[in-house]
Design a protein around this nucleic acid. Structure first.
Lengths: 201, 201
DNA sequence: AGGCTATGTTGACAGTGTCAAGATAAAACG
DNA sequence: CGTTTTATCTTGACACTGTCAACATAGCCT
């Protein structure tokens, strides 16, 4: 990866850019992520990235797509632990969701933030990865309803939107710096889980 | 207000900047809000704003402070309607919260977004207005607990964080463009309210 | 071998936040 | 009243951004 830098053609600039971007994202944050710096990291000129991505937003979408893919895998892993009770898995999911956001704040911001979703800016490639991820939330909700953990008198889609909204909201309040004190994350997660499962204390 | 433009000294540049910023914010969004354009709107040079605000973030904080003040007033008005039942007021609060966000997406983004809260960037002036607003959420939560609407076996602070998180999450998913279909806002609000008040169907 | 195409380059433009240094007017002070 | 301080505003400059246009290179296909 570090050898063929001298040649005129990079070889795999697209991957190199995504890699550099992911690294810079987690280290310096999305706000100070510039195409020019990424190009420099990859050892190419400022405008080279434009032969692989339509614009900056397209590059960001590509990174986010990777994030969605990873998260979807993680969510499925938690959800499909046969050896644990549905209730335990539900609680674990809540903790893991917030945990993922807290551990990867800039990636979370990118994936679920306005940068790539606003004004229908989302790439089709991104939607293809993200929508199944959203859909999985509904699938899980329906399952938990069937198991009696979540209220059965609510539409699964609405309920999924609300439960996801809760997790998303807590995650954002944390990573955006509004909940300055992040020492009670687990307590908040438990409180949320308890609230959802009010009938099963 | 539009007369003394010719004079060397503006007179009330600070207010003019905030006014111009508020107008531009709701019309063009926070991303395309630049100090230079605001200065032009006010009829002064690019760097004049720096005599009234430390930097761009300070100006944004000032606008947000106004937003918090307004929202706090609105929230109190809803909460203190003596002629309505606590339950009705709770439900109304949920709808109004999401409604405020949906009607003023850019202001909401500014008030509750990372722009002004990240890295302890928040001004003290801002905190002085915002914290009571947050605190009011806890006060209301405790009240609703006392009235038996919300579970009494939870710490009021945690519960307030979770319920607020829910509202915030739904609001953000809507205004950030992730919930592309905004035609079921009211249903989501009712679902959330029902979920919180599970024991009072 | 020759040309097409993917990929890379430099130059340029409009825009941004922000600092430094100088100009002006209003307010404070003797 | 005159003078000096202070608040406010101005121009100039810098480093940085995303992105377009025009040109250069090299690998691939016929």
């Amino acid at each position: 990866m570090a050898n063929a830098v001298q040649s005129y053609h990079h070889g795999d600039l697209r991957s190199a850019l995504i890699e550099a971007a992911t690294a810079r994202l987690s280290e310096y944050g999305i706000d100070s992520l510039s195409l020019r710096k990424l190009a420099e990291d990859a050892g190419v000129s400022r405008t080279a990235p434009y032969h692989h991505f339509k614009d900056k937003s397209a590059l960001l979408s590509a990174i986010a797509a990777k994030g969605f893919s990873d998260w979807h895998t993680a969510a499925k892993r938690i959800f499909e632990q046969e050896d644990k009770t549905p209730k335990a898995r539900f609680r674990e999911f809540v903790h893991e969701y917030i945990g993922y956001a807290a551990d990867n704040p800039e990636m979370y911001e990118l994936m679920f933030g306005r940068t790539i979703w606003q004004n229908q800016a989302a790439t089709n490639d991104l939607k293809d990865v993200a929508f199944p991820c959203f859909q999985f939330q509904v699938t899980m909700t329906r399952y938990w309803q069937d198991k009696g953990l979540l209220p059965n008198n609510q539409d699964a889609l609405r309920l999924a939107q609300v439960t996801w909204g809760t997790l998303h909201g807590i995650a954002r309040l944390l990573i955006d710096g509004i909940y300055a004190d992040s020492s009670h994350i687990d307590e908040m997660c438990d409180c949320a889980a308890d609230l959802f499962m009010q009938k099963q204390p």
